[in-house]
Write a protein that binds this DNA or RNA. Sequence first.
DNA 1: GTAATTGCAAACGGTTTGCGATCTC
DNA 2: GAGATCGCAAACCGTTTGCAATTAC
Lengths: 136, 136
Amino acid sequence: MSQLRLITRTTNQRQVIYDYVQGASLSHPTAEHIFRAVRKKLPRISFGTVYRNLLALEQQGLIVSLFYAKEHARYDALVDNHYHFVCEKCDKVENISLEEMQEINKQISRRHGVQVHSHRLYFYGLCSDCSKIKKV
Amino acid sequence: MSQLRLITRTTNQRQVIYDYVQGASLSHPTAEHIFRAVRKKLPRISFGTVYRNLLALEQQGLIVSLFYAKEHARYDALVDNHYHFVCEKCDKVENISLEEMQEINKQISRRHGVQVHSHRLYFYGLCSDCSKIKKV
DNA sequence: GTAATTGCAAACGGTTTGCGATCTC
DNA sequence: GAGATCGCAAACCGTTTGCAATTAC
């Protein structure tokens, strides 16, 4: 997330990493899974290379990362059911009062044969203050 | 998340931390925000105490933590829109194909005067394998 | 008095980064 | 050849933890 450049060269490492993630997509591998698997073909590869390439692939839109905690943990004493909106510019977090979506848990449980107990839903965008500002 | 005990004593530290989080709930403070604020009343308090009490308060259901990444980052080469289900027992991640919920972004934008660009939605529960097992 | 809790400081662990060497184009 | 990328190792940083001292009950 800290690097912005999109310049890209097709290195062997990047290709092997992408091939593995694509083939193993259904298992949703972690960086360590990927590292271990790719090291079988490229024994000298390092974690740094894996992370840098995963970031590059994500920036190219070829893969997606899940549960990536760019945000720090935050705490809320309002424990009733509500959701949260995160401003991507100023990091403000706002409460979103939405009609509870318990039905959706049941719907997913039925369709996928799983037992859904809870869900987490976050919205991202620009808050009202930040969306006013056109130029800085 | 690693501690399970619920035994609780009302210490001054815990009370001050809870009071602050409750009063500052709308700002959704981070652990560091809380640490800095609480230190004004309790100059000798440590980060360890803050984190331990936030965990205790969460286990008592008095506060809620957001964006807490218990999961490692995971990668997915299926970049079309879909959601994910996480088994809380075996950590398996499954794809959830759900009709796109773009309308919900518009709805939130309208109600809250913000510009929602995206949302993240995760489901948690027991996968079909783990929900079969009654006893181990 | 006993056990939970604290303050301190060190450890943890996933991720990032600086650097000289290497590879892509 | 220029500069993106690699391998290596150290740094980063939010969070956790071991331990002796303190505190709540």
